[in-house]
């Protein structure tokens, strides 16, 4: 927190919560979010692919066993919840869990470390945790939303989907209300997915920043418990995002 200009607390917090933005208005990009998430994705999924490529059906090494445990956990969740036949649900769930977990885990890095490193190479702002950027969480939830729409149309066909939209839950006579309910229900899915993850991570990051405002010799008193607790939160949030995606897609596959 100590910089040459010695910023006030609010300046310090504001500094940590500002993205590195390029562009103006809507057509601007949060470079830190894009780069961090892409690099992390590249590292983690590249690693998993290299393990998968060498995967043996014989006795697995520890690395392979670790990836297998992860994959089997996801597979079990998918199998318990999702009863349709779709090749994408498993890989999608695994991608969400692993990616969100890794992005969340950036939260466990010391809050000043990344921005200090980046400012030392001349970059003013750098938000290290991409999931505290609603752009990322909404991008994921909207992608999931389109997948939900796609499978609704694919499985129930256009007619079946429309019938479901206009007749459930009140029957054909109250079609407008059914449509309204359906719109609310379906729009709530991506919004709640995105805001839940964003809110949790944003709040968690905020707590870390506030802890960083304490005197250095006191920071561990709150910082250590909160970091340990946060391990649970980042895993939980990744898991919730994954499991809700599976549930939404399984709902898209089944008629009401």
């Amino acid at each position: 927190m100590t910089e040459s200009a010695a910023p006030s607390s609010s300046e310090y917090i504001h500094h940590h919560l500002t993205n590195l933005v390029i562009g103006k208005g809507f057509w601007s990009f949060d470079i830190d979010t894009l780069v961090t998430s892409a690099v992390l994705g590249l590292i983690v999924f590249g690693f998993m692919a290299s393990v998968a490529r060498k995967a043996t059906s014989g006795v697995p090494g520890r690395t392979q066993a670790a990836v297998e445990i992860l994959l089997e956990m996801v597979q079990t969740q998918v199998r318990d919840t999702f009863h349709g036949e779709s090749g994408i649900v498993g890989p999608l769930a695994l991608t969400i869990f692993v990616w969100v977990f890794c992005l969340n885990a950036m939260d466990l890095l010391p809050v000043d470390l990344v921005s200090l490193l980046m400012s030392s190479v001349g970059v003013g702002h750098w938000k290290a945790v991409p999931t505290t950027d609603p752009n990322l969480t909404f991008a994921m939830s909207i992608t999931v939303f389109f997948l939900i729409l796609y499978y609704n149309f694919k499985i129930k066909k256009c007619g079946g989907f429309m019938r479901e939209v206009f007749t459930v839950p009140f029957g054909a006579k109250l079609a407008p209300f059914n449509l309204l309910f359906r719109l609310i229900e379906d729009l709530a899915k991506p919004v709640s997915l995105a805001l839940r993850l964003f809110g949790n991570m944003y709040a968690g990051e905020m707590v870390f920043i506030l802890i960083a405002l304490l005197p250095p010799y006191l920071q561990w008193v709150l910082g250590a418990p909160w970091a340990i607790f946060h391990i649970l939160i980042i895993t939980l949030q990744a898991f919730i995002f994954m499991i809700l995606t599976i549930i939404y897609l399984s709902m898209a596959h089944e008629s009401h």
Binding site: F26, T33, L34, P130, D133, N135, F138, A139
Partner: peptide, 13 residues
């Protein structure tokens, strides 16, 4: 919310 949305969606896809 800005165009990062699209970038992230592409990365995610």
């Amino acid at each position: 919310i800005n165009a990062t949305l699209f970038g992230q969606a592409i990365t995610f896809a």
